[in-house]
Design a protein around this nucleic acid. Structure first.
Lengths: 246, 246
DNA sequence: CGACCTTTTGATTGGCGTCAAAATCTGTGG
DNA sequence: CCACAGATTTTGACGCCAATCAAAAGGTCG
C-alpha cells in the first residue's frame, strides 16, 4: 500500500479535498509527518496535552471519553480513512477525549499551531474544514438520537448501517462486492461502548439480527443482507452521511 | 431591551466576536434581518428547506430530531443567547433537525448563500466559526457521554449544571446573585427529551435532588445549592464549556 | 499447547418505561 | 376577581429492557 503522506493529504475525504495548485503546495508545506500505530494502542489521551491534529490514512480508530466516576467508556465516533481527529482541545491543547486505534493504522500528523495560520492563508481549506466538521457534528447528532431514543436493537442496527456505508465509501478496498461484505474489525465490546449498552446485550442483539437473516456477521466480516428491513428498524438512511456545506 | 440586530451581531458570543473595523462593516453588510418568535413555536423543521442561518439574540431555544418510527423527540442542544443555529443542512438546504423556541425569542437571520462568500472574504470570521463549531461538537460529545453512559440522576444533574453555567455566562441578566438562581424555562418533558428519559422519571429525579437539598427548583427558577456534590454526581466541570480554538 | 481475549448462554436483578389518575400551575375570558 | 380549560407536576402500581453476575465455549497468538 502506498503510505506516502502526500497521498493522504489529497485523499478524497481529507481536509485538502478542494486543494489544487498553490493549495496543494500548501498542504505539503504545512504537513508534518506520518505515524504508524499497532492495533489497540493510544494515539492520544483525554486530559493530556497534545499538539497535533491527525488525518487517518489507513485502518480504523475510535474517539472516546472515559467517565472518571465509573470508568465506563463512551465511544463518540469511529475513525475511518480520511477522517480528521484531534482538532479539538482547549487553549492549552488539553484534549477532551482519547483516540486509539482499532486495527493497525497510519495517521498523518500536523502541528496544531500551524492550523490557524493555514486556515487564515487558505480560506478554501477553512471552508472544507467547516464542511468536515459539519459532517462530524451531524454524525454526532444522529448518534445521540440513536443512543438517547432508540432501543438496543434499533441503535445497534443504526450503527451497523452507518459503518457499512462509511466503510464502503472510505475504504473501498475493504468491500467485497460479490457477497456485499466489509471487513469489520470491531468487537462486541466496541459496539456496546458506542451505543451505550453492555457487550452481553450486544451479543444477544447480534444473535437476533443474524438468526433473522438480516446480517451476516462472522470472523470480522459484516454483510447487510436485508437493507430495507434494517433501515426500517433503525431509521437509518444513507443520505445522513452526505457532507453539508456552509 | 435593545433588540437592534447590530447589537446581536457584535454580541460577545456571536460569530462576529472577533470582528473589528472592516469586519464589523462586513457583519453589517451580510446581515439580513431579525425575527421574533413566541414561546414554543417552530423556527424551522427537520426535512424541510431552510435558506437561513440564525444567531439567537434573546430567549431560549431547542435543537432536536424526531424519530420517524416512534415519534420520540431527542433534544440535541439548548440554544441560549449568542448561540448559532441552522448552519447545517445538505446541498439542498434540507435541514437535518428542527429548531423551536422554548421562551419568546428573537433571532438574527442571515441568508445561507452569503455565508460561504463571507467566510472566504473574512478568514477571521471563518476561524471564529470553527471555534464555535468546536464548542458545539464538544457539548455534543459530553451530551452523548451523559446519555450513553450515565444513569438518570447523573445525566440530569449534568444537564442542570451545564445549563446553569451557560445561562450565567450567556444570559447574565437572568441570574440573581443573591440566591444563586437562574431563570429556568424548561419543562420536565424538555429535560427528559434531552437526556433520553421520560418526564415521569425526570420528576422522580428532580424530587430526589430537591429533597436532598442539592438544588432549588420551583416556578421556573433553578438554584445550585451544592455544586461540589452535584459535580461529583455528574462528572461535570465548568472547564468543559471553554471554547477551543483551532 | 497454554494464556488471553472474545463470544455465547443462563439466571437474576434493577432502573426506568408505561399506564392511570390526582394535584397543581398558568393563562384566558367573562 | 373568579371560573374554567389545558398544560405541567406529582404520585402509585406494575412490567420490561437491559445490567449484572457467573461461567462455559470458541478464537487467536505466542
Amino acid at each position: 500500500m502506498d503510505t506516502n503522506c502526500s497521498q493522504c493529504a489529497v485523499r478524497k475525504e481529507s481536509i485538502f479535498k478542494n486543494a489544487v495548485g498553490d493549495q496543494l503546495n500548501c498542504a505539503q508545506r504545512y504537513r508534518h509527518s506520518q505515524l504508524s500505530f499497532p492495533a489497540r494502542t493510544a494515539v492520544f489521551e483525554e486530559n493530556e496535552h497534545n499538539h497535533y491534529i491527525y488525518t487517518l490514512f489507513s485502518g480504523w480508530g475510535a474517539v472516546y471519553k472515559t467517565s472518571n466516576n465509573t470508568g465506563k467508556r463512551q465511544i463518540l465516533r469511529f475513525l475511518l480513512p480520511g477522517d480528521l481527529a484531534g482538532y479539538q482541545g482547549n487553549a492549552d491543547d488539553i484534549m477532551p477525549h482519547s483516540v486509539s486505534t482499532v486495527t493497525d493504522a497510519i495517521f498523518c500528523v500536523y502541528p496544531r499551531e500551524k492550523v490557524k495560520p493555514m486556515l487564515l492563508e487558505n480560506p478554501e481549506i477553512a471552508v472544507r474544514f467547516i464542511e468536515m466538521w459539519s459532517r462530524d457534528l451531524s454524525l454526532c447528532h444522529n448518534h445521540l438520537m440513536a443512543v438517547g431514543r432508540k432501543k438496543a436493537l434499533e441503535s445497534i442496527t443504526f450503527l451497523l448501517l452507518e459503518l457499512f456505508h462509511r466503510a464502503r465509501q472510505q475504504v473501498p478496498d475493504s468491500y467485497q462486492a460479490q457477497d456485499n461484505t466489509i471487513d469489520f474489525p470491531l468487537t462486541q465490546q466496541d459496539i456496546g461502548d458506542a451505543v451505550g449498552i453492555t457487550k452481553i446485550h450486544v451479543n444477544r442483539v447480534m444473535k437476533i439480527l443474524t438468526n433473522d437473516g438480516l446480517i451476516y456477521y462472522h470472523k470480522k466480516k459484516l454483510a447487510i443482507l436485508d437493507e430495507k428491513k434494517l433501515s426500517e428498524i433503525s431509521g437509518f438512511s444513507p443520505t445522513m452521511l452526505e457532507v453539508s456545506s456552509p
